[in-house]
C-alpha cells in the first residue's frame, strides 16, 4: 500500500471503517472467481501441458523439462527471438517519434483542420488487419504492385517482393506495423499535449523558449508519462503480434518472419503438437512477466500525468 493510499485510509470516516472485517473479503469473490476461471486456470493448464508430450498413438507421456530443452535447442526459436527483438526495438521508438512529431504539429500548427488530420492519421488503427494485409501485399508486389507503379516513374524495377525475401521479410512487416500503429501513438501524444498546463508553456515562452527548444526542454519531458505508457503498451503489443504476420507471410518464407504468435499457432494448431505449443507459450509468458517487472521497477506506477501530480502532492 502506498503512502498516499495509506493516508487516505486513515482519513476515511469512521462509518466506513466499522465494516472492515474478514467477511468483507467476500466482496473480492467475483473478481477472484473471474481471475481464477479466465486467467489462472488457463495458465495452469498450459503449464501442465508443457510437461507432457503426445506420441504418434495420441497418448500423452510426462517428459518433464525435455520439451523446454528441445525448444531452446531449436534454431527456429532463436529466429523468432531475433525477430521479436527487431520488432520491439524498431517499432516502439519509431512509432513514438513519428506519432509524437505528428501530434506536435497537429496540435501546435493546425486549427480548423485539426480534427481532420487527427482522424486521417488514426484511420489505419481502426482499419481491419485483413484489409491492411491485402493492401500491403499488393503494395509490395513487384511487377504489378502499387509501389512498383510509382517506382517505375523513376526507372526502378523491383526484382522481388520484400515479404518474399527471407532477408527483408521481417522488416517489410515492421513497416506495415509502424504504418498501422503510428496513429495510436499520435493520439496518446495529442491527449498528453492537450493536458499540458498552459501556465508552464507560457512561462517557458516568457523565458525565451521557442520551437525546438520548447519541444525538447519543456514539452517532451512533460510528456514522459505518455512515453512510458506507450513503451509499456509497445512491449505488450510486440509480444502479442500475430494477425498481420499470419495474414501476410504466415511466418515465412522458411520461418524468416516468424514471431511468437505464429510460432505458437503453427506448433499447436497446424502441427497439432499441443505440448510443444504450450512450452513456447510458457516461455513467452515468463518473458512478458520479466519485461513487465523490469518496467514496473524502472517506471513504477508513474504512467499518467495524474499519478505524477499525486506523487508530488
Amino acid at each position: 500500500m502506498s503512502a498516499i493510499s495509506g493516508r487516505a485510509f486513515e482519513q476515511a470516516p469512521k462509518h466506513y471503517r466499522r465494516f472492515a472485517g474478514p467477511w468483507t473479503y467476500l466482496f473480492l469473490l467475483p473478481a477472484v472467481a473471474l481471475f481464477v476461471v479466465f486467467i489462472a486456470y488457463p495458465i495452469v493448464w498450459v503449464l501442465s501441458e508443457s510437461f507432457f508430450s503426445e506420441g504418434n498413438d495420441r497418448t500423452s507421456t510426462f517428459v518433464g523439462l525435455d520439451t523446454y530443452l528441445s525448444v531452446l535447442a531449436d534454431p527456429v526459436f532463436w529466429i523468432v527471438v531475433r525477430n521479436m527483438l527487431l520488432w520491439g526495438l524498431i517499432t516502439v521508438p519509431v512509432q513514438m517519434i513519428i506519432g509524437g512529431t505528428i501530434a506536435y504539429f497537429i496540435e501546435r500548427h493546425t486549427d480548423a483542420w485539426r480534427g481532420f488530420f487527427r482522424t486521417m492519421f488514426f484511420l489505419p488503427v481502426v482499419t481491419s488487419v485483413s484489409v491492411i494485409s491485402l493492401v500491403w501485399v499488393q503494395i509490395y508486389a513487384p511487377y504489378y504492385g502499387i509501389a512498383q507503379q510509382y517506382l517505375s516513374y523513376f526507372g526502378i524495377e523491383m526484382a522481388s517482393s520484400p515479404i518474399g525475401d527471407p532477408s527483408t521479410a521481417i522488416f517489410a512487416l515492421i513497416v506495415v506495423n509502424i504504418w498501422q500503429w503510428t496513429g495510436f501513438s499520435m493520439l496518446m501524444y495529442v491527449a498528453g499535449i492537450a493536458n499540458l498546463p498552459t501556465e508552464v508553456l507560457d512561462a517557458a515562452r516568457v523565458d525565451g523558449a521557442r520551437g525546438l527548444r520548447l519541444a525538447w526542454s519543456v514539452i517532451i519531458p512533460m510528456l514522459s508519462p505518455v512515453t512510458k505508457s506507450l513503451l509499456l503498451l509497445g512491449v505488450i503489443g510486440t509480444l502479442q503480434t500475430f494477425p498481420i504476420v499470419q495474414l501476410m507471410t504466415t511466418g515465412g518464407p522458411n520461418h524468416a518472419s516468424e514471431v511468437f504468435g505464429t510460432y505458437v499457432f503453427r506448433t499447436s494448431f497446424v502441427l497439432g503438437d499441443t505440448g510443444r505449443g504450450a512450452t513456447i507459450s510458457v516461455i513467452v509468458l515468463l518473458l512478458a512477466l520479466i519485461l513487465s517487472v523490469v518496467q514496473i521497477v524502472y517506471f513504477g506506477a508513474n504512467l499518467s500525468p495524474s499519478s505524477r501530480k499525486e506523487e508530488s502532492a
Binding site: 501485399v137 499488393q138 511487377y143 504492385g145
Partner: peptide, 22 residues
C-alpha cells in the same frame, strides 16, 4: 513464375488476377 512469387498469395490475389485475365 512471376517475379516476386515468394511474397504472393494464390487466394485472393492470384485467383482474382487470373479471373480478370491478367
Amino acid at each position: 513464375f512471376q517475379k516476386g512469387a515468394l511474397g504472393a498469395h494464390a487466394y485472393p490475389t492470384g485467383a482474382q488476377l487470373f479471373a480478370q485475365g491478367k
